[in-house]
């Protein structure tokens, strides 16, 4: 019986990778341009939302795969199916591409006609049985060459979008893209979802290990991880921005360019105010059953706490610079 998204046995693992970066345009895209930018298919609408913030999401596209799954225990389980990928734009400013799939615990012993896989979008079926734990760790740790690489699929979609003629390739501030890999194992029967680990790995890589009730569809888990990736990227970007600024009284040698008497700190912080500070809105696009997972990160390390401290610091600096230089120096220099 045809049941496009239910006929596969319950998923024992869902995995994905999100790429997050600043949209390389001088001005943020408005909602209409966002819809045009994300129209990956001629016959499918881009989903648009204006509350609580502008947000646009592309239709899902599929990529076929037939390769071994990454695994931590060295087993090479071959799997066949499709990986789903989509792109999203927050406030016309932050671009994310997200690729994900789910795995049932067992699959057929040989490859089936391709149409079988296409009516199960985002499902990759293993040959024989698999150990979800080993695969989850394999995905998070990165596989060997030739293993399934969802990051490549997210990256391929990102590359395709970055060639769009709507982009003038003039970003208003310096920032680095980030990658967030995630793996969601099933929660114990009756237990709710939980966030087991959030790791800041190398420079731009984050890994997230989750447990979720098997009934939750993977696109919602991907939605949660997109939201985590977006806010982690905002923190990373603003921290880097503040890192490069020299605070305190301007040195005579560091005078700004002639004709521009704004201090360096103001020049450096202004783009954050213009383009980033209004984007902080955790949980805005997270399914209600997964929203509580944010609380874990709010308790420790405290994402919103850090963000508020950064925002306060930026505002304080700008306020200081609003005070005429004469008084400022007089009061601050002992």
């Amino acid at each position: 019986m045809a049941r496009p998204e239910a006929s596969a046995p319950d998923a024992v693992l869902a995995c994905g990778e999100v790429r997050t970066r600043l949209l390389p345009t001088r001005q943020a895209l408005d909602i209409r341009s966002a819809a045009q930018f994300l129209a990956l298919r001629a016959d499918e609408r881009v989903l648009l939302s204006e509350r609580p913030a502008l947000y646009a999401r592309s239709p899902e596209t599929l990529t076929g795969v037939d390769c071994p799954l990454p695994s931590a225990n060295g087993s090479r389980v071959r799997a066949v199916g499709t990986v789903a990928a989509r792109a999203a734009l927050t406030e016309g400013r932050v671009l994310q591409t997200s690729a994900y799939f789910r795995l049932p615990s067992t699959g057929p012993d040989q490859r089936r006609p391709w149409g079988h896989y296409l009516v199960r979008p985002g499902v990759v079926e293993p040959f024989g049985k698999l150990l979800p734990e080993a695969i989850a760790e394999g995905v998070l740790g990165g596989g060997r060459p030739g293993d399934l690489d969802v990051g490549l699929i997210a990256d391929g979609l990102l590359t395709r979008l970055l060639r769009h003629p709507l982009l003038d390739q003039r970003p208003p501030l310096r920032s680095r893209p980030t990658r967030l890999r995630w793996a969601a194992l099933p929660a114990a029967p009756g237990a709710g979802p939980s966030l087991e680990r959030f790791t800041l790995a190398e420079d731009d890589l984050r890994t997230v290990r989750l447990r979720v009730p098997p009934a939750i569809p993977p696109d919602r888990i991907a939605g949660l991880c997109d939201d985590l990736a977006l806010h982690d990227w905002l923190l990373t970007t603003v921290v880097h921005l503040l890192d490069g600024v020299r605070f305190g009284a301007p040195e005579p040698s560091a005078r700004p360019r002639p004709g521009d008497d704004r201090p360096a700190a103001v020049l450096a912080l202004r783009p954050a105010v213009d383009h980033l500070l209004h984007l902080w809105m955790p949980r805005a696009r997270v399914a209600s059953e997964l929203a509580p997972l944010w609380d874990t990160l709010e308790r420790q390390p405290g994402f919103t706490r850090q963000w508020q401290a950064l925002v306060q610091r930026i505002r304080d600096q700008l306020t200081l610079h609003a005070i005429p230089a004469l008084y400022r120096e007089a009061e601050l220099t002992p």
Partner: peptide, 16 residues
Amino acid sequence: GRIVESPPPGSYGLRP
């Protein structure tokens, strides 16, 4: 625009 090519064995995420 809806064609998703059947992947030959060895397709791990790069475009065919």
